[in-house]
Design a protein around this nucleic acid. Structure first.
Lengths: 194, 194
DNA sequence: ACCAAACTTGCAGTCTCTGCAAACTTTGCG
DNA sequence: CGCAAAGTTTGCAGAGACTGCAAGTTTGGT
């Protein structure tokens, strides 16, 4: 088998805690929910909560998946317009999220209930950004890293803004459409400045 | 007189705490310093610390000053290239910081010692950003707010990146030069995409 | 069935932060 | 000056996040 019993248990407990946290925070707001309440609902001791998560925030915010390797290669060796190829790369990434769509929307709703949580979310995004920067750098060897960092910030900020601003999702939309909205908004903005 | 005794005392205590916090965190790192240590060094009780500051972070991070009104008007009714006029506006804002130059550099150094602090700093920047957006919106009535928000994010992110990335300051440089560096980097980046 | 490694739990303790009430200070006023 | 109102400081008790430790339980391999 691919997973030992121990691993399955561990994943299950982790999921239990995450879901307990998400459901509680969705109704009560992040700040009103104690780690004790989460642990109880998840059926573990408060101490165990901290064996799984570094802090209350990380039970809600999880790291986004990596970019799919084949999409990375396609981008790095791509020959299209930079923004168009970026769009493809990001769609590939977003498609990985399709399955957790419902959870992701809940997480975004919960993020709106707390400044701390928002900050944690942004920290997670920064990690994504650093991977993102590395990838773009591979395509644009000769461009100074600082500029690429700025470019990445611009893109991720825009995606974030679109995802939290957009009126409550109808949930039927393809999640990758966020990427399109964001990049369109970005292109409009660029015209503004030029 | 312009300030009553009470007000002067209050300002002085606030400054005492801020300085105690900054000095301690500069040498020990934000996470190693307790609110008790800060209070003791500032010569007040731990309870008083929280009468002055909402939390440990806010003793380090303070809100940036508002944009000077005359600079705002100049920008709103300006006729130059958007980015050039923005540059003037931001320089005017940065010039207000000139006096606290030394403290600001320390704050930036301390921010690097803690994720939490960085997050708090970004939250403060977000507030600036919202004022910034309002100002630009006044000049560009007909542009959708979302695009202006993106524009502001881009600029503030770039400034932040320049300020934290730039090799340790020589402290003699005009602080407003950060604005120039940032906007130059931004313009370079835009060329990349076009 | 048995042992070692992995996991869970309780407990005691540190730290941030809040509410409350008692003591003290400043201020405005007669 | 002297006194009341308003503003401030402080101590104390307590909630809640989080850690280290040690004792107990479960699992995986032999």
């Amino acid at each position: 088998m691919t997973e030992t019993l121990r691993e399955r248990r561990r994943n299950q407990t982790s999921r239990d805690i995450r879901i307990a946290a998400l459901e509680l925070c969705f109704t009560e707001g992040f700040d009103k929910v104690t780690t004790e309440a989460i642990s109880t609902r998840a059926g573990v001791s408060p101490r165990t909560f901290f064996n799984y998560f570094l802090n209350k925030e990380s039970a809600i915010i999880s790291h986004p998946p990596d970019f799919p390797p084949e999409a990375i290669e396609a981008f790095v060796h791509g020959t299209g317009r930079l923004l168009d190829d970026l769009r493809l790369l990001m769609r590939a990434q977003f498609n990985l999220l399709q399955d957790d769509r419902k959870m992701i929307d809940m997480v975004h709703a919960v993020i709106r209930t707390s400044e701390v949580l928002r900050a944690t979310h942004e920290a997670a995004m920064r990690q994504l950004q650093s991977k993102f920067t590395d990838i773009i750098q591979r395509r644009l060897h000769n461009v100074p890293r600082q500029q690429i960092e700025i470019l990445c910030s611009m893109i991720l900020i825009t995606v974030g803004q679109v995802m939290t601003d957009s009126p409550d999702t109808d949930n039927t939309r393809d999640i990758a459409l966020y990427v399109d909205d964001a990049l369109d908004a970005l292109e409009q903005t660029l015209k503004l400045i030029a």
